[in-house]
Design a protein around this nucleic acid. Sequence first.
DNA 1: GCTGAAATAATAAGCCG
DNA 2: CGGCTTATTATTTCAGC
Lengths: 158, 158
Amino acid sequence: MKRLRNENAGLDAADLKILRLLEKDARTSTAELARAVGLSAPSVAERIRKLQENGVIEAYTVRIDPAALGLKLSAWLRIRPVPGQLAVVAGIIRDLPEIAQCDRVTGEDCFIALAHVGSVAELERVIDKIIPYAMTNTAIIQSSPVEPRSPLGGLRER
Amino acid sequence: MKRLRNENAGLDAADLKILRLLEKDARTSTAELARAVGLSAPSVAERIRKLQENGVIEAYTVRIDPAALGLKLSAWLRIRPVPGQLAVVAGIIRDLPEIAQCDRVTGEDCFIALAHVGSVAELERVIDKIIPYAMTNTAIIQSSPVEPRSPLGGLRER
DNA sequence: GCTGAAATAATAAGCCG
DNA sequence: CGGCTTATTATTTCAGC
């Protein structure tokens, strides 16, 4: 396997392959990973331990389909707080359990947030919590041309 | 444990607890999950099997920190294709490995996409692929007031 | 990083309410 | 049908090299 260590943030080709396989199925056994990269199982386990230690692997998690839970309506909210209310709005967003993720961004919109709800009425309830302190723009998700996929794609081969 | 089955999409309180624990750490052993919900390990395994079967659990995956890979720049792109080019733009987005997710949405922006890149130059390269066929608006992520969290939050207690 | 042994965990079979 | 216990198989972890 080609030597690439100390490029791509200190990860070699085996590390990248392990990451890609774990992204596809986090329950892949170390034995199977070992076979895929041509190392022994304990070596793979040690590499995974280090990937966690240096923060590359943040967590092992399950992807849950909101629609299967009855949350059939998802929406992106762009949120522009009125002057002086940014921290208040951030607090409100954090306290809304329907918000599954929220980033602070540059540009005229300060926040972009994802909400999963069961109905338009619930979406209205979410927006009404925010709207006293911010201008909002809501875009309902119709489909997902790119389902959440690996950030590894951003790595340029060097 | 209170009986809630056939509410919340057929999930009872034990199922929800299992899901919440797996979201926090997908490697939690069935024995530990069993202890948490007051069932035996095989019963928990059977519930998990059914949660996968009916699509609630879509996948087991690892969360990877793009910054730890050297992808220190992330941005939300709002993309409005010029008339007639929507399918072309969707194809281009799918083929850009730097795009980690993309939703089609209602409103004047047709797509909202997340990019992870190593530099402003790489971001420019991504935008330049799209811009012949669409108007774009780029918002750099500064921080994340709400790190990706459970869609279970959207469930109303009934 | 490897091998081989010990400890853990997942899975399967058979049984009960 | 959903759950429990026991037995078997697979996987992870730990020593020593």
